[in-house]
């Protein structure tokens, strides 16, 4: 039981964090805060991947010394042949590196849009913007 709780605690916290981010995105009408929520949401997803990649007693997946290549030997578990060390799983790290970059790209475009929206409407509150558009719609028809 304790093993189960300790082994799954991270997931529960990460899920809570994800939902915090999602809640901010959905609930707030402020466009900048929405983007902050998006950032938190995405960062928590990154955490889900990274927590997955951890191996107990592991080290970062970087070899200290590069053994001579070209040998045919295959090693047992993920152990450095020279040092006998366990390494964590590198694949999720790579995926998340990519995802972080994608996240910041989205954020940059989103913020640029926010700046333009503020220039066009004088507000960054979703409700105010909807109201302004609604007034125009009523006036034109």
């Amino acid at each position: 039981m304790v093993d189960f709780i300790v082994g799954h605690f991270n997931y529960w916290v990460i899920i809570t964090l994800m939902m915090t981010g999602l809640y901010v995105i959905i609930s707030t009408g402020n466009l900048v805060k929405k983007l902050v929520g998006l950032g938190v949401f995405q960062t928590s997803v990154f955490q889900l991947y990274i927590t997955l990649s951890k191996v107990a007693g592991g080290r970062p997946p970087i070899f200290d010394k590069l053994p001579g290549y070209g040998t045919e030997t295959k090693y047992g578990a993920a152990v450095d042949p020279l040092l006998g060390v366990i390494y964590s799983n590198p694949l999720p790290h790579v995926l998340i590196l990519t995802a972080i970059v994608v996240g910041v790209s989205t954020l940059a475009v989103g913020l640029a849009l926010v700046v333009r929206i503020r220039e066009a409407y004088g507000s960054i509150e979703g409700d105010d913007i909807d109201e302004a558009e609604y007034k125009i719609e009523i006036a034109s028809s």
Partner: peptide
């Protein structure tokens, strides 16, 4: 209105993409 349209698309599209990433992560 193109700006707000694009912004809403960005928010929902990114939520969609992030849900997809969660799904892929769970599959992995």
């Amino acid at each position: 209105q193109a700006l707000t349209a694009s912004f809403n698309y960005l928010i929902l599209g990114t939520i969609g993409a992030t849900f997809f990433v969660i799904g892929v992560g769970l599959l992995y």
